[in-house]
């Protein structure tokens, strides 16, 4: 099975979950609403014809001029069928209803923490929503387009005794 026939199956089975779809460089891309994300992912994973059993990657893109400025792109791969599909979901930066895929795919855990670290989008239902790359006491989210390119902490103000230590309860 290739990506195009997988897209055909999805469009026939769950057309109401799909806002639009496109083919780019031979890969199928589905644009979906975030309310339906868990259902789409569940369908992709559990449907016997598709069985997209691997979440390869998950990353964010910032479009600062749009209202829903954070786009999260999910990269599903089917090991049994050797094909790949992309799902794109848009959210506002302070969106609280963007679902976490951790209940379905354990791989989503650290990927979503990275998106939170870099873009500030908090995933609903994530078991451990905190930073993963930057120190916990870091200020801002570096991959946002309006984050200054060379904004750095001053070295003498770093916390040398207890590096990165913050009260995690205070973060939430």
């Amino acid at each position: 099975m290739d990506s195009l026939s997988a897209l055909k199956i999805i469009k026939e089975a769950v057309p109401h979950f799909i806002l639009s779809d496109e083919i780019s460089h031979g890969e199928a891309i589905i644009i979906a609403k975030r309310e339906h994300l868990l259902e789409i992912a569940g369908f992709l994973k559990n449907d016997e014809r598709l069985s997209f059993n691997l979440l390869c990657d998950l990353f964010g893109v910032d479009y600062p001029k749009k209202a829903e400025r954070i786009e999260v792109i999910y990269n599903f791969y089917s090991v049994t069928n050797n094909c790949r599909i992309f799902v794109k979901v848009r959210s506002k930066m302070d969106e609280t209803g963007h679902p976490s895929l951790t209940p379905l795919y354990n791989a989503a855990n650290w990927f979503e923490r990275e998106v939170y670290d870099m873009f500030g989008l908090k995933f609903q239902g994530h078991p451990d929503m905190k930073r993963i790359l930057n120190p916990d006491d870091w200020d801002g989210h570096p991959l946002l387009k309006d984050y200054p390119l060379r904004k750095r902490p001053t070295p003498d103000k770093l916390n040398y005794d207890t590096p990165g230590y913050v009260e995690l309860d205070k973060l939430k």
Binding site: L133, P135, P153, P155, L158, N159, Y160
Partner: peptide, 10 residues
């Protein structure tokens, strides 16, 4: 990196 700096100093 700023994350590693405290360890280097220590």
């Amino acid at each position: 990196s700023y994350k590693m700096a405290p360890m280097v100093k220590r």
